[in-house]
């Protein structure tokens, strides 16, 4: 068993445990913090897979910006824990069964249809060269999607402002 495999197994154990903790914990603030742990673990996987830029974006955008927004809204609404509802009680058991079926299908599929055995060399964090090449690719081959993304972000920003704008009574 090589050191790469040990690192992978430990990290994946942390990732799965954090994901389960997110789904299962009663307090929404704990859920958000578990999700931050999961995102950081996945960022380390990106580093191992030779994607340092994506790892840093993951930490700044996901673990930083998005989760701060989540925590802010959770605390703003006081929605740390909701009363358990008894609408559709059979749905939880059905959901567990379906989730088990989904994971069984996915693993069966991946295990039986893999085209060839591919390995990833171990803990290699690329130098700045790969970052430069990725930027060249992003701004040459993927320039149009990049610009469309900027429009998407603008639309989302305007949409969030319009949705949360408080209309004054009597004016409209």
């Amino acid at each position: 068993m090589t050191s790469d495999l040990i690192v992978f197994l430990v990290l994946s154990l942390v990732a799965v445990a954090a994901a389960l903790g997110m789904v299962l914990s009663r307090n929404a603030v704990y859920s958000a913090l578990f999700l931050v742990l999961n995102f950081v673990t996945v960022a380390i996987f990106y580093l191992i897979l030779g994607a340092p830029f994506i790892a840093m974006s993951q930490i700044t955008v996901y673990a930083g910006a998005i989760m701060v927004l989540f925590l802010f809204v959770i605390m703003l609404l006081g929605a740390e824990s909701l009363a358990p509802s008894e609408v559709l009680p059979w749905q939880k058991w059905l959901a567990r069964g379906l989730a088990f079926a989904l994971i069984a299908e996915l693993i069966y599929l991946f295990w039986n249809t893999r085209p060839e055995i591919i390995t990833t060399p171990g803990l290699v964090v690329n130098s700045m060269d790969s970052l430069r090449a990725m930027a060249m690719s992003l701004f040459n081959d993927f320039l149009l999607p990049f610009e469309v993304t900027s429009i998407l972000l603008l639309v989302a920003m305007v949409g969030a402002i319009v949705l949360s704008k408080r209309e004054k009574a009597g004016q409209k």
Partner: peptide, 14 residues
């Protein structure tokens, strides 16, 4: 060496 299958299965579990 870590097979890419392991990553894909981890992704499926998540």
């Amino acid at each position: 060496m870590v097979h890419v299958d392991y990553y894909v299965i981890l992704s499926a579990i998540l």
